[in-house]
Amino acid sequence: MTRVLATGTFDILHPGHLSFLEQAKSLGDELYVIIGRDVNIANKPKPIIPENQRLLMVQSLKPVDCAVLGSLTDYFEPLHIIQPDIIVLGFNQQIDEENLKKDLNARGFHPKIVRLLKADTGSEEDMYSSRKIIAEILQKRCFKD
């Protein structure tokens, strides 16, 4: 039984999130997802959707076997329970794979790390980015001529 772990904010759930989770699930038998806590999100704007609601949304997705909120204090804490065989990173997640591997190994974890590719949909119109969705909403709803 191969257990795959994905992590993310999953704010304004969109097709890119679903593609990421479907790709992750295809790598194993079980897909666990850790949802980033509001207070721990530092490398991008704070989420619009509260963490408990983001958790509920991700839990409802077909590829996801189990979703949990991350730890408030230690990024690696949930791994003690999950025990992943594979950790997947999205194409745009700002995580250095070598540093992650060193940090995991120092804590006694030895999963395979896989960086997923951006889904090629063949269309620039696809809403595969929270930032793109927000920009589109602002353009169409707030700044109409």
Results as ranks from 00 to 15, higher is better:
21 L>N: 13
41 I>N: 07
69 L>M: 06
63 P>G: 05
5 L>M: 10
110 H>I: 03
34 I>K: 07
111 P>L: 04
88 V>N: 01
112 K>H: 05
97 E>H: 03
89 L>G: 05
145 D>F: 00
110 H>A: 14
112 K>F: 03
101 K>T: 14
26 S>Q: 11
97 E>R: 09
67 A>W: 00
60 S>E: 04
27 L>G: 10
36 G>V: 02
103 D>G: 03
22 E>F: 05
127 M>W: 12
6 A>R: 01
12 I>T: 08
86 I>L: 08
116 L>W: 07
131 R>I: 12
41 I>Q: 08
26 S>D: 11
100 L>P: 06
65 D>Q: 02
30 E>I: 07
103 D>H: 10
49 I>A: 02
3 R>C: 12
104 L>F: 06
117 L>I: 09
71 S>Y: 03
64 V>P: 01
37 R>W: 05
53 Q>F: 11
128 Y>G: 06
30 E>Y: 13
56 L>C: 08
2 T>L: 13
69 L>V: 03
45 P>W: 01
52 N>P: 03
65 D>K: 01
32 Y>K: 03
82 I>D: 04
3 R>M: 10
28 G>L: 10
114 V>K: 13
48 I>E: 04
70 G>R: 01
72 L>S: 14
116 L>K: 07
112 K>T: 13
12 I>L: 15
38 D>M: 04
16 G>P: 04
69 L>R: 05
128 Y>H: 13
108 G>K: 07
116 L>Q: 12
70 G>P: 00
47 P>A: 14
67 A>Q: 01
108 G>A: 05
24 A>K: 07
133 I>P: 06
125 E>M: 11
6 A>Q: 06
126 D>R: 12
15 P>F: 13
59 Q>C: 11
110 H>W: 05
64 V>N: 06
78 P>S: 05
118 K>H: 09
26 S>H: 07
136 E>V: 05
96 D>T: 04
74 D>K: 09
84 P>V: 04
84 P>G: 12
116 L>Y: 09
129 S>V: 09
31 L>P: 07
124 E>N: 13
45 P>C: 09
7 T>H: 10
123 S>F: 10
100 L>D: 12
78 P>V: 02
56 L>V: 06
135 A>K: 13
80 H>C: 02
109 F>I: 05
144 K>Y: 02
104 L>Y: 09
4 V>E: 02
73 T>N: 14
22 E>P: 02
10 F>C: 13
9 T>E: 09
72 L>I: 05
51 E>F: 00
90 G>W: 00
60 S>M: 11
16 G>N: 10
30 E>F: 15
138 L>H: 06
108 G>W: 00
80 H>Q: 11
17 H>A: 12
65 D>L: 02
48 I>H: 12
110 H>C: 11
127 M>H: 05
16 G>R: 11
95 I>V: 15
93 Q>N: 12
127 M>N: 10
18 L>M: 15
112 K>W: 03
71 S>P: 02
60 S>K: 07
142 C>R: 12
51 E>I: 01
23 Q>T: 06
88 V>M: 03
140 K>H: 14
78 P>L: 01
112 K>D: 07
1 M>Y: 08
76 F>A: 04
60 S>R: 11
4 V>M: 08
70 G>S: 04
40 N>I: 08
88 V>T: 15
16 G>I: 08
77 E>F: 03
100 L>M: 10
68 V>Y: 03
119 A>Q: 11
65 D>M: 02
37 R>Q: 06
